[in-house]
Design a protein around this nucleic acid. Structure first.
Lengths: 338, 338
DNA sequence: TTCAAAAATACAATCGATTGTATTTTTATT
DNA sequence: AATAAAAATACAATCGATTGTATTTTTGAA
C-alpha cells in the first residue's frame, strides 16, 4: 500500500510490460491475454495504483461527467431533481458535478466557465432569478454543446426545455380558490424575467377570466418570494380591501405570509385561504397545512438527464430543440378547505 | 466566436508566437511583454479560446479543487455547511465539488474514488450512517492526503475533526427538560457507530446523573432518525409508562413524532415536552415550535475548509491531527415551555 | 515440421498546457 | 558604436493515459 502517485508506467516497469498493454489490461481490453491481465491487476493493487482521470479525460476527450447548476441545493424541489439526475447518470455511467448559483448571475457565469473548462460532456441548468440574458450560454448552445434547461425554461434560443405546465398549475390553483367561493384573490408573483413566473401569473389571470372575475393589477404582489418577501407581501395585503385568498407562486412566501397573518389574528382559511406552489415538505406540516402544487421533481431530473445523455450520444440530436412539459397537480390541504 | 476546441497552439499559429509564450501571456506572466500579451489576449477572445483545465491540472499536478461529501444536500444543516465551505473556497481560489452519499457506504466509497482519481487537492467529509470502518479512507490519510472530517467525527485514525460539542448539547437539552420538571425523559438516539450520536446520548445520561435521575435503558429508542422512525418511536413511546418528555437527537424524528402524538390528542408540551437537535428551519414553524440545539453550521463550513486549505498549503501540517470543537446552544421554544 | 493466420505485445504519437533552459532581441551604459 | 545585462521569446520535455500501427509470439492446419 504505497503512495498515491503510482502510474501505469510504474506498473509497466515493475513487470517489464509495456505501458500500453498495462493500460489495455486495466481497461479490460481483449487485446491482452488473461494471464497478463491478472498479473497487471494484481501488481496495480499491490502498488495502490489509481487511474488519473485527468490524463484519461484529456486523451480521450470524453469526461463522462455532466454539470448541474441549480439556484440552491437546499431547496427541496431542486435536491429532488438532482436525485433524479443522479439516478439516471449512475445507470449511464456518468459522474455529476452539482453547483449552486445562489440566484446570482455572476456566480452562474463563473460556474458555467468552470464546468466547460473542465470539459463536462453536457450541462443541465435551472437559471438564476437574476438571469435576464444568456450571452454566457448561447455561444455554446450554438456550437451544439449539449445543454438543457429545466424548471426555469429559456425560450430565447433554440433550446431544449424540461418544464412543468405552470400555466395549467396556475389556472388550477386559482380556479380551486374561486370554486371555494373566493373572489378577491391576491397573487404573490416572482421575477417576471423568469418565464415560469409569467406563466403562473398567466394561469392566474386566465382562471379569473374563465370565471368572469375582473383582474386587478393591485392584487398582484411581485417579489423574489423569499421568506421576508412573504412577510412584506402579507403586510401589503392587509391594506387591500377584502382579500379572501392568496395564490402564491411558491411555498416559502406563502408560509411566511401565513405565519405573519396568524400573529394578526387572521384565520386561515376562513378569512384568507392560501394555495402555494412546489409542495415543499414543510407545507404538509405547518398549521393549517398548505394546499399547493406538486411538481414531479424526481421525474423531471430523470427526464432532463435522459434527454441530455441522448444529446451527448448523438450530437445532431442536440440541434433539434424540444420542450418536454411535465404535469403538475394540485394538492388540497387545510389552508383552502372550508 | 468559433468552436470550443481552440487551444493555445491555435493562437500560437495564428500569431506566429510560440505556444509557451501564449501560455505565459494568458497566465499573465511577467516574462511576456505587455504588447504581446495584448495581442494574445485579443486573439484568444476572437477565437473563443477557453483553457482546458484538464491539461493544466495534469501538468501542474494541482487542481485547485476540493471535494465535499455529505450524507444529503437537502438537509438544511449540510447545505449551510456547504455554503460556509464555498465562501472560504471562493476566497482561496478553489473550486468545490459537492457530493452526497445518501447515507450509503457504497456510494461513499465510490465518491471518494472518483474525487481522488480526479486528483482533488483535499476532501471534507461527513461520513454516512452506514460507515463503520474507514478502509476506504485511511490509506489516503496515512499518506498525508488532506482529509478532514466534520460534524460526524472519526477518531479511529489520527484525524482532523471539526465538530460541535455534542456532549454538552445533549447535556443542556436534557438538563433543560429536567429543570422544567420532567422526570421520565425518553431519548431518540441515532446509529451508535456514529460518535456524534454516542455523545448526544452520553450528554443525556450525564444530565440524568447530575440531577440524580436514574437512567433506564428502556427510555432510549434507537433508530436512523428518519421521518418514519420518528413515528415508530412515538408509537413505542406510548406504550411506556408516564413519559413526560423527549430529547431527540435530530429534529426530523422529533417533528414527525410530535405530529403523530398530536393526532393521538397528546398535548405538547403539557403531556410530553420535546427538544430536538439541529435547528432545521421547520422547527421554528411547526406548532408548537420545537426547542432545539442550534449548530454553528455556516461557521463549521468555514472552519473546516480553512483548516483544509492550511493542510493543502503545508502538507506537514496535515500529519498533526487536531480537533476543533464548536459551541452549540439551546433554543427554547414552545415545545418545552410551561 | 512449416507457415499463414490470429493473438499478444511493443512502439510511438497524441491530448493541451506548463516550465526549465536556451536563444534572440532590446535596453542601457560607457 | 560596442557590449554586458536584462527582457522577451523560442525550444523541448513533461504530466499520465490512450490508441493506431508495427512487431513478435502463439496457434493450428496442412
Amino acid at each position: 500500500m504505497k503512495n498515491n502517485n503510482v502510474t501505469i508506467h510504474d506498473i509497466s516497469r515493475a513487470l517489464g510490460i509495456d505501458s500500453s498493454t498495462v493500460s489495455r489490461a486495466l481497461n479490460n481490453s481483449d487485446r491482452v491475454s488473461k494471464k497478463t491481465k491478472e498479473k497487471i491487476v494484481e501488481k496495480a493493487a499491490e502498488l495502490g495504483y489509481q487511474r488519473n482521470s485527468l490524463a484519461s479525460k484529456l486523451r480521450t476527450n470524453r469526461t463522462n461527467t455532466i454539470g448541474v447548476i441549480v439556484p440552491r441545493i437546499s431547496r427541496h424541489f431542486f435536491s429532488s431533481v438532482i436525485s433524479g439526475i443522479e439516478e439516471t447518470a449512475f445507470k449511464a455511467g456518468f459522474d455529476v458535478i452539482i453547483c449552486q448559483s445562489l440566484e446570482s448571475i455572476d456566480r452562474e457565469k463563473k460556474l458555467v466557465e468552470t464546468l466547460l473548462s473542465n470539459r463536462v460532456d453536457g450541462i443541465l441548468i435551472s437559471i438564476s432569478m437574476e438571469t435576464t440574458n444568456l450571452d454566457h450560454l448561447d455561444n455554446y448552445k450554438k456550437n451544439g454543446f449539449p445543454l438543457i434547461f429545466f424548471d426555469r425554461p429559456c425560450n430565447v434560443l433554440e433550446n431544449t426545455n424540461v418544464i412543468i405546465d405552470d400555466l395549467k398549475a396556475g389556472f388550477d390553483a386559482t380556479a380551486h380558490l374561486i370554486e371555494r367561493g373566493c373572489k378577491n384573490i391576491v397573487h404573490f408573483s416572482g421575477p417576471q424575467n423568469l418565464e415560469l413566473y409569467r406563466n403562473r401569473k398567466k394561469g392566474y389571470t386566465n382562471a379569473l377570466n374563465a370565471y368572469g372575475i375582473p383582474f386587478s393589477k393591485s392584487l398582484v404582489i411581485e417579489s423574489q418570494l423569499m421568506q421576508q418577501d412573504g412577510i412584506d407581501a402579507a403586510r401589503q395585503l392587509l391594506k387591500l380591501p377584502k382579500v379572501d385568498a392568496v395564490f402564491s407562486a411558491n411555498d416559502t412566501a406563502a408560509i411566511s405570509a401565513m405565519q405573519y397573518l396568524k400573529t394578526k389574528n387572521i384565520n386561515i382559511p376562513k378569512d384568507i385561504a392560501f394555495v402555494g406552489f412546489s409542495n415543499e415538505p414543510i407545507s404538509a406540516i405547518i398549521e393549517p397545512s398548505l394546499s399547493t402544487i406538486n411538481q414531479p421533481d424526481f421525474e423531471m431530473g430523470k427526464v432532463a438527464s435522459s434527454l441530455l445523455f441522448e444529446q451527448i450520444k448523438n450530437k445532431k440530436y442536440a440541434a433539434e430543440n424540444q420542450t418536454k412539459i411535465l404535469k403538475p397537480y394540485l394538492i388540497i390541504r387545510n389552508s383552502s378547505k372550508f
